[in-house]
Design a protein around this nucleic acid. Structure first.
Length: 437
RNA sequence: CGGGGUGUAGCGCAGCCUGGUAGCGCAUCUGCUUUGGGAGCAGAGGGCCGGGAGUUCAAAUCUCUCCACCCCGACCA
């Protein structure tokens, strides 16, 4: 992609409304644009990142045996009246009246809809267990949206729902999601800590929040410091096998959100206790038959009896993750994307656009990189070198190939690694092989 | 929902107290010079001063009102 032709409206100065670093950088790097309070447009560069995050979530859901579907954003009020939540949910739910005076709503979550789909389609215990998920926009009319995409009113969420015959089987579904969450966040470079959590209005008695420690987090959290050394990707994720040991390991140490915090128990940790702020990036619940009972979802069991399936629900804030990743990966110059979610893998900087040799050398390396499957952003703008360095640092691509007449005269270009700041001069060939490694 | 604050050019802001032809920096456009860390000079374009109502000879400025946005708290899959 040529930057001269790319829609990338970056800002030199900090927008006044953005208080936390991820919000500032998302606006400055041209990732998003605010449409109303808590509602954002995703611009091309931001959308690329959002899609990458989404894809990692999808791959890990699929590996764990969950199946993707897509439910609508707009739902009929009847289902919510059935579950009893239509009145209970309050003003956070955006209610809509259609032309036939029928009450509709913009879904804040999808338990009712998925339970309706399930009850109409599944009759036998032989069809269980099932985990269904979708990645869809949600709307919650928050009293006070803030921090950019971290607490938006409209946000992209992955929500999964499990249906099982009995408690033991439901626990296995819970464990699958638990492990897949560990892997999902780790693949994005995030150290997410599963913490005992309150179940809130969803109900149920088993719940974990996945928390990223960050000063700008909205929750007060407490955990054993050894969690910081845990490596989720080192865990073998064989979803056919027993996941109990992995879950046990990750829940063996103290970790709790504010609501579940037990000061007495925490005090026993002594110096090992971390008391910090955290960003909630995922939340999983087991809630038994709460919805299947309320909505009359039944299946025929092995004995021919009618049973309500045991359910759980599992959410990941996809759009929030983009902000959370930036909170974890940035420096004074801008964003520092982890490779797995970077919008482009390499930025090529032409330091002297208009110089034939320089233009040709850049075009050549861009072609070769793209032929090798790299996603390249080529800064061919008619700008001075300084502006190109600043832009590239701001948008945080993992690698910068810096090409100017000075180096090319000697047959070398400069490779800069954004995360470490290390630069080295290499021949074009060695630079190519390093970037494509 | 309680408390506080801000709306003036695409972005960041001054002007408001004390009413009198709307300004600065960046960005944009043109020209020349420059060219390895957000260039210099010269010129140009761009504003219902958030909306409405009022006071006044005269309102960005004073009054009332509505709206939007931000911050603190409460709330929050």
């Amino acid at each position: 992609m040529r930057l001269s032709n790319y829609f990338l409206p970056t800002l030199k100065e900090d927008p006044a409304e953005a208080q936390i670093v991820s919000h500032r950088l998302m606006l400055r790097a041209g990732l998003v644009k605010q449409a109303s309070a808590g509602i954002y447009s995703w611009l091309p560069l931001g959308l690329k990142v959002l899609r990458k995050v989404e894809q990692i979530v999808r791959e890990e859901q699929d590996s764990a045996g969950a199946q993707e579907l897509l439910m609508p954003t707009i739902q009929a009020a009847e289902l919510w009246q059935e579950s009893g939540r239509y009145d209970g949910y309050g003003k956070e739910m955006l209610r809509i009246i259609d032309r036939h005076d029928r009450e509709m709503l913009y879904g804040p979550t999808n338990e009712e809809l998925i339970t309706d789909i399930f009850r109409q389609s599944v009759r036998s215990y032989k069809d269980l267990s099932k985990i269904l998920y979708h990645i869809q926009w949600k709307f919650r009319d928050e009293v006070r949206p803030r921090f950019g995409v971290m607490r938006g009113r409209e946000f992209l969420m992955k929500d999964a729902y499990s249906f099982d015959l009995d408690y033991e089987s439901a626990r296995e579904s819970y464990n699958r999601m638990f492990v897949s969450y560990l892997r999902t966040f780790a693949r994005m470079g995030l150290q997410a800590i599963p913490m005992q959590a309150d179940t809130g209005p969803i109900g149920g008695d088993l719940s974990h929040e996945f928390i990223i420690l960050a000063d700008t987090g909205e929750s007060d959290v407490f955990c054993h410091k050894d969690y910081l050394g845990f490596d989720a990707l080192a865990e073998v994720a064989d979803y056919q096998g027993d996941l109990g040991p992995v879950v046990n390991k990750w829940t063996s140490l103290y970790a709790a959100t504010d609501e579940k915090h037990d000061p007495g128990q925490a005090a026993e940790l002594g110096d090992n206790l971390i008391s910090a702020r955290g960003i909630e990036v995922g939340h999983i619940f087991y809630f038994g038959t709460k919805y299947s009972k309320a909505m009359g979802a039944t299946i025929t069991g092995p004995e021919g009896d009618q049973l309500h399936p045991e359910m759980g629900s599992y959410g990941i804030g996809v759009s929030r993750l983009v902000g959370a990743i930036i909170e974890a990966y940035h420096d004074d110059d801008g964003i520092v994307w982890p490779d797995s979610v970077a919008p482009f893998s390499v930025g090529v900087l032409n330091l002297r656009t208009g110089d034939i040799d320089c233009d040709n050398a850049c075009a050549d390396i861009v072609n070769k990189l793209e032929a090798a499957g790299q996603d390249v952003l080529y800064d061919d703008r008619d700008e001075r070198a300084g502006a190109k360095f600043a832009t590239m640092d701001l948008i945080g691509l993992p690698w910068q190939a810096i090409m100017g007449p000075r180096g090319l005269k000697n047959g070398v270009i400069e490779l800069k690694h954004r995360a470490t700041g290390e630069r080295e001069e290499l021949s074009i060939e060695s630079a190519l092989s390093k970037l494509c490694a």
